[in-house]
Computed example of a mutant assay.
Amino acid sequence: MVDEAGDRDESSNVAIIREVYDSENAHETFEYELERALESECSLIVIEPSKLGDETSRWIAVGNCLHKTAALSGLAAIVTGVLWGDRPYICGPLGFTAIITCGLYTVSWQFDPCCQYQVETDTSKLPHVELLAVLGPSSPTFLVRKDDTRRRILHTTITLAALSITAWRVYQAFK
């Protein structure tokens, strides 16, 4: 658990969610502590409970997958729409995939505080390596706060361009 005095360092903005089972609803307590750490925008969150760490890692992986799918299918729709303008059946599904995945990301993940974090597996890249000595023998999950503004702008811009090219190519095909 994160307690304000011992486990939160305000100068370095780090939160450690300790795996302490002191009640029968400890998992809910861990989730509450994670929510508190996410809302306070800590630069590093260390999650010791493996179940919560796995759930959080999977949630972040799904958001990353949606982002990458939107960006890559959007780029593919743009390229195929420009190169093969007479074949809208190629760029159409790619553009539709980009629109759907970008929409899902925007609706489901954009306002989630967890989307501001990435799972860091290489402990040498952690901003506060001295904290590793404090941790127990468990293998915690490390969440590092990253600014995703450029990433959001990138996949939204690509998706809008893909939508424009795809719509234009489909319009030309049925004209």
Rank of each mutant, 00 (worst) to 15 (best):
2 V>M: 10
4 E>C: 05
4 E>R: 13
4 E>M: 11
4 E>S: 15
4 E>L: 15
5 A>V: 12
7 D>G: 12
8 R>A: 05
8 R>I: 14
9 D>N: 14
10 E>C: 11
10 E>G: 13
10 E>M: 13
17 I>V: 12
19 E>C: 07
20 V>H: 11
21 Y>N: 14
21 Y>G: 12
23 S>N: 07
24 E>I: 03
24 E>M: 00
25 N>E: 11
26 A>Y: 00
26 A>M: 07
26 A>N: 10
26 A>C: 04
27 H>D: 15
31 E>G: 02
32 Y>F: 13
34 L>I: 01
36 R>L: 14
37 A>E: 04
37 A>L: 05
38 L>Q: 01
38 L>N: 04
39 E>P: 02
40 S>K: 15
41 E>N: 15
41 E>W: 01
44 L>T: 08
44 L>P: 00
45 I>Q: 04
45 I>G: 06
46 V>Y: 10
46 V>F: 03
51 K>F: 11
52 L>H: 04
53 G>D: 05
54 D>N: 14
57 S>T: 15
57 S>C: 08
58 R>C: 05
59 W>M: 11
64 N>L: 06
66 L>W: 03
66 L>K: 03
66 L>P: 05
67 H>A: 14
68 K>E: 10
68 K>P: 04
70 A>F: 03
71 A>G: 05
73 S>K: 03
74 G>T: 00
74 G>R: 00
76 A>C: 09
80 T>D: 00
80 T>G: 00
80 T>A: 06
82 V>I: 14
82 V>K: 05
83 L>H: 07
85 G>E: 00
86 D>P: 05
87 R>V: 13
88 P>Y: 04
90 I>S: 02
91 C>Y: 01
92 G>L: 09
92 G>M: 02
92 G>C: 06
93 P>H: 11
93 P>F: 08
93 P>R: 10
94 L>P: 01
98 A>I: 04
99 I>P: 01
101 T>E: 05
102 C>T: 11
102 C>F: 13
102 C>M: 14
105 Y>K: 09
106 T>H: 12
108 S>F: 12
112 D>S: 13
112 D>Q: 10
114 C>N: 10
116 Q>G: 14
117 Y>P: 01
117 Y>V: 02
119 V>N: 08
119 V>C: 02
120 E>A: 10
120 E>I: 09
121 T>Q: 15
121 T>V: 14
122 D>Y: 04
123 T>H: 09
125 K>N: 13
127 P>C: 05
128 H>C: 13
129 V>W: 08
132 L>H: 11
132 L>F: 08
132 L>M: 12
133 A>C: 10
136 G>L: 01
137 P>N: 13
137 P>V: 09
138 S>G: 12
139 S>P: 09
140 P>F: 03
140 P>N: 07
140 P>G: 03
141 T>V: 11
142 F>N: 01
144 V>P: 02
146 K>P: 07
147 D>W: 01
147 D>A: 10
149 T>G: 11
149 T>M: 13
150 R>M: 15
155 H>W: 10
158 I>D: 00
158 I>P: 06
158 I>M: 00
159 T>E: 02
171 Y>T: 03
171 Y>L: 03
172 Q>F: 02
173 A>Q: 05
175 K>V: 05
